[in-house]
Design a protein around this nucleic acid. Structure first.
Length: 928
DNA sequence: ACTCTGCTGAGAGGA
């Protein structure tokens, strides 16, 4: 039986005398949310307390669990497994038993590596999180050896595996100056130890007896028995709040591979702790684990010379309850500290600083951020405003991380039905079949039974499961193909997929954190002076005309080229932002600069790169323009420029290092490979949609930077409500208006259409670039005559009254009316592929889609940003009143109203729209 | 209350 609830008050920790002597206990007042009859958190809930019963129950935590009790604060979540129940003065109380685990904030998922770092030194955990691990050879080699180990377990030939894995990491190895041959030799030594040990295992009776499937499988003749081995399994525990990926599992017990040195007989303690984490994860998945194996691949030769004559690099050890519970307490320390927003000092553990590799880094970070630390501080602290900025931004990023953790929690909190309504999963799959691939991986196929929509896309990582992503068999898989009726995945193991869930990744938050760190602690002082307002940005005047017939664009390019610190280009809709970017890049390249071209989305990076290539017109050799990104992220026509990671190391490294122009998303700029690069100038598009640390990821790679964007359009997408919602672009535009140029001539909209946006959002400064643009109408298009349109929509801006229905996020009446409009335009000779329909809610988008032909583009405002159409129809989907956060951000209507070139039709209920001043002005403009 | 893009990922090791 388990209990779960919220801490409702102060915790009383004390000692009592029992028959066994002095014992510690803590009494925790807990408002119960769940009481379950299973041992773990996935048991059947027997009792869901009613409101009347929501007064705190006392849960007593005995002995060592008082250490975890001391971490608790009112409001924190607590889970206690295997509790004992007792009646005390007429009320039910609970207490830990010898088998209990006490879990603080169980929805906070702690990585196994975090626990491993924490046990070595809590400060090490913090430093690792803050700055990430840079590219270095031992780590890359270790990774390759692990991959080869996995390959061996899946039955791949040793030499094949070594060659393939080294080739895959050609780029990284090349950047490190390593040759394939040297690495192969190195990996071979480690792998030989593994193979020898595996061979030994194969000869033993137990393993032999278990060998079934693999022996019979003609496709995988060398595979070890599937029943006794499993490689690289991703495990998530909802009970313990731990997540990790075990190197291998042998007969249900974890095997951890270590390529580092361990000269002692015993496994290192942190390695034991790591294995114990996997044991906990396996226990939750129905295992009963009491031993772990650590495989030190450098040790074989050494051990042979020892007096034992031991031939094996493997060290087995037993894991008792004491170790497992200790590991959960470590995990609790991390969770409690993170929930509290704390920073570890190092005093929490007993590591000795003088033995630590990170001692210097630790002291520098402590000194710069003025943090208390066991290692002490060196250097002067950052100015107070920078420390304040660090703390605020760090906190905001950690809140984002919490939101990712909540996504995980949903994996088990939502039942299949709720999940089906959520677009983060496809739960309707029917398993069709599997096929072995080279290297022991599998291709999995499933059929889709319903037409459910989801945000899953080809190239995404998902948790592929046979029913439940946490409790069932599940595997990290990649979506290779996703059609309306079929799914193809690749994975390490052959799961019989019936469901796939979005894999919530902390990668972005990790990268934001390290970008913040790099900017503040490793960044250039001059840049910080400017960004923190201690110095003004400087410009060298450039006497060259870059753009002939557009003064603002010309000034924007000269500004960007002449900027000593940074320049800003404010590009309202249709003002030739992309052209200006291309012209700027060209001008920089002509001056011999190395340029990083970045943006938040892959789409924007590809668009900008396309324009740059056109502008270069061969001025830079094709192979010196490089697009860094994943195959699924990069648009097909940019694939020839995509940097291949696999290959001969020196060649791969040269492909990147010799590039004059490198294009990548800001998220990719935070990758280890990109962090090794440096540029003269970073040019970042869509900068108004980037968080500050997101912008830093690109900007810290260059000496100077240019931000391009429009803060009057949509802001950054963040999960939590926090300080990340204002972009660096917007802040700088406000702080240094002179550092920016607003492109004021638009090449998109008829004058009638642009009028509202211009006055409302751009101080009336936005105007048509040419008379042609100002006067463009549908009549200009071949075969189209406005005279054939109904009177009501003949004007370039029209309003169509619809009474609307009462439902909140959809409006069938509007959808039907929109279908009529589409027909009317078609009858007037317009091809319907030139019509776009925009709605605020996704539900209304799908409602409209059922009413109009599929070649009409229907989408949300957010997704229409950056594109345009001849005709745009906007469905407001609000009846009676205009309530809801979606309407509060006026930047959203700015985007919607500035998409069309020749005609705009607003469809909605005027009564609702009139209730807000901005929308009322919009109605007036639309002639209603 | 709603909108929603990134990312191979988690762990790889140095005494």
């Amino acid at each position: 039986m388990y209990v779960r609830g919220t801490v409702a008050g102060e915790i009383d920790v004390r000692s009592v005398s029992t028959t066994y002597g002095e014992t510690d206990l803590a009494e925790v007042p807990l408002v119960l949310e769940e009481v379950g009859d299973g041992e773990r958190a996935d048991g059947v809930v027997t009792e869901t307390p009613t409101d009347a019963e929501r007064n705190p129950t006392t849960v007593t935590l005995w002995n060592k669990w008082t250490e975890s009790a001391a971490l608790l604060e009112p409001g924190m979540e607590l889970l206690v497994t295997d509790v004992g129940e007792e009646e005390y003065r007429g009320e039910t109380r609970y207490a830990t038993t010898g088998d209990s685990y006490v879990v603080v904030e169980p929805t906070f998922l702690v990585n196994v590596t975090s626990i491993r770092n924490w046990v070595e030194c809590p400060r090490l955990y913090y430093l690792n999180k803050l700055s990430g691990v840079p590219l270095n050879y031992p780590v890359v080699k270790g990774t390759i050896v692990h991959e080869v180990f996995g390959d061996l377990l899946r039955g791949r030939d040793l030499e094949d595996a070594i060659d393939a894995r080294i080739e895959e990491r050609g780029l990284e190895l090349g950047l490190l100056g390593e040759s394939s041959e040297a690495v192969a030799e190195d990996v071979r030594e480690n792998a030989a130890a593994i193979e020898g040990w595996l061979e030994q295992g194969r000869l033993t009776e137990t393993d032999g007896a278990n060998r079934t499937t693999a022996d019979d499988d003609p496709e995988r003749p060398f595979a070890p028995a599937e029943s006794s081995w499993r490689s690289e399994q991703l495990l998530i525990s909802e009970t313990f709040g731990i997540r990790g990926r075990a190197d291998a599992i042998r007969r249900g017990a974890p095997v951890e591979l270590k390529t580092g040195k361990n000269l002692r007989k015993e496994p290192r303690f942190k390695d034991k702790v790591q294995a114990a984490c996997y044991a906990l994860l396996l226990e939750e998945h129905g295992g009963d684990v009491d031993t772990g194996t650590l495989l030190y691949t450098k040790n074989s030769a050494l051990d042979r010379n020892e007096e034992t004559g031991d031939l094996t690099p493997a060290k087995e050890f037993s894991m008792g309850n004491g170790l497992l519970q200790f590991v959960v307490r470590l995990r609790n320390e991390i969770a409690a500290m993170e929930i509290d927003g704390g920073v570890p000092t190092g005093y929490e553990g007993d590591a000795k600083c003088e033995y630590c590799f990170e001692q210097d880094t630790c002291m520098v970070v402590s000194g710069r951020l003025d943090q208390e630390s066991k290692a002490g501080q060196i250097g002067r602290p950052l100015p107070p405003e920078e420390r304040e900025y660090f703390e605020r931004t760090y906190r905001a990023i950690e809140e984002e991380r919490r939101e990712v953790h909540r996504e995980y929690a949903k994996l088990w909190e939502q039942d299949a039905e709720e999940r089906a309504d959520d677009d983060r999963a496809l739960v309707d799959l029917e398993f069709v079949g599997k096929r072995p691939l080279d290297g022991g991986r599998w291709e999995l196929r499933a059929r889709r039974r319903t037409g459910a929509t989801s945000k899953l896309r080809e190239g995404d990582l998902v948790l592929a499961s046979d029913g439940h992503p946490v409790r069932g068999q599940s595997e990290l898989a990649r979506i290779e193909r996703l059609d309306d009726d079929a799914v193809v995945l690749t994975a390490d193991e052959a799961v019989e997929v019936t469901r796939m869930d979005v894999y919530p990744s902390e990668l972005t938050t990790d990268r934001l954190l390290s970008a913040l760190h790099d900017f503040l602690l490793k960044g250039d002082d001059r840049r910080k002076d400017v960004l923190f307002g201690r110095a003004d940005p400087e410009f060298d005047p450039v006497e060259e005309t870059f753009v002939d017939n557009n003064d603002a664009q010309n000034e924007a390019v000269s500004n960007a080229v002449g900027a000593s610190d940074f320049a800003l280009i404010h590009g309202p809709p249709g003002t030739g932002k992309t052209y200006t970017i291309a012209r700027t890049v060209r001008a920089l390249v002509d001056r011999g600069e190395r340029v990083l071209l970045s943006a938040f989305t892959n789409r924007a990076v590809d668009n900008a790169l396309e324009a740059v290539l056109e502008q270069l017109n061969g001025a830079v050799e094709d192979d010196r323009v490089v697009r860094v990104g994943s195959e699924s992220g990069v648009r097909d026509d940019m694939e020839p420029y995509r940097l291949e990671r696999a290959g001969e190391p020196a060649t791969r490294a040269a492909a990147l290092e010799d590039a004059r122009i490198v294009a990548a998303t800001t998220a990719t700029c935070g990758s280890r490979v990109m962090k090794e690069q440096s540029f003269d100038v970073a040019l970042v598009d869509e900068a108004a949609q980037l968080t500050e640390p997101g912008t830093f990821a690109a900007v810290t790679l260059a000496d100077r930077f240019v931000l391009v964007g429009d803060h009057e359009q949509l802001p950054p997408v963040v999960r939590a409500e926090n300080d990340l919602t204002e972009s660096l672009f917007e802040r700088l535009v406000e702080r240094y208006p002179d550092a920016g140029v607003m492109l004021d001539r638009q090449y998109r909209m008829n004058q009638r259409i642009q009028a509202f946006a211009s006055t409302e959002f751009y101080d009336g400064r936005l105007r048509p670039a040419t008379p042609e643009v100002a006067g463009r109408t549908l009549d200009d298009l071949e075969g189209v005559s406005r005279d054939d349109l109904p009177e009501s929509i003949r004007d370039p801006v029209a309003f169509v009254d619809v009474e609307g229905d009462e439902s909140r996020y959809t409006d069938t009446a509007e959808a039907e009316r929109i279908a009529d409009l589409v027909r009317a335009y078609e009858e007037a000779g317009l091809d319907r592929s030139r019509i776009g329909v925009i709605a605020p809610f996704r539900a209304q988008v799908s409602e409209i889609s059922t009413h109009v032909p599929s070649d009409v583009a229907v989408d949300t405002v957010d997704r229409f940003q950056g594109s345009s159409q001849e005709v745009i129809v906007v469905s407001f989907t609000a009846t009676g009143t205009l309530e809801g956060p979606i309407f509060e951000d006026y930047r959203r209507i700015n985007v919607a109203l500035t998409r069309p070139k020749r005609a705009l039709v607003l469809v909605g209920d005027p009564r609702a729209l009139k209730s807000d001043p901005v929308y009322r002005r919009m109605l007036e403009w639309a002639g209603r």
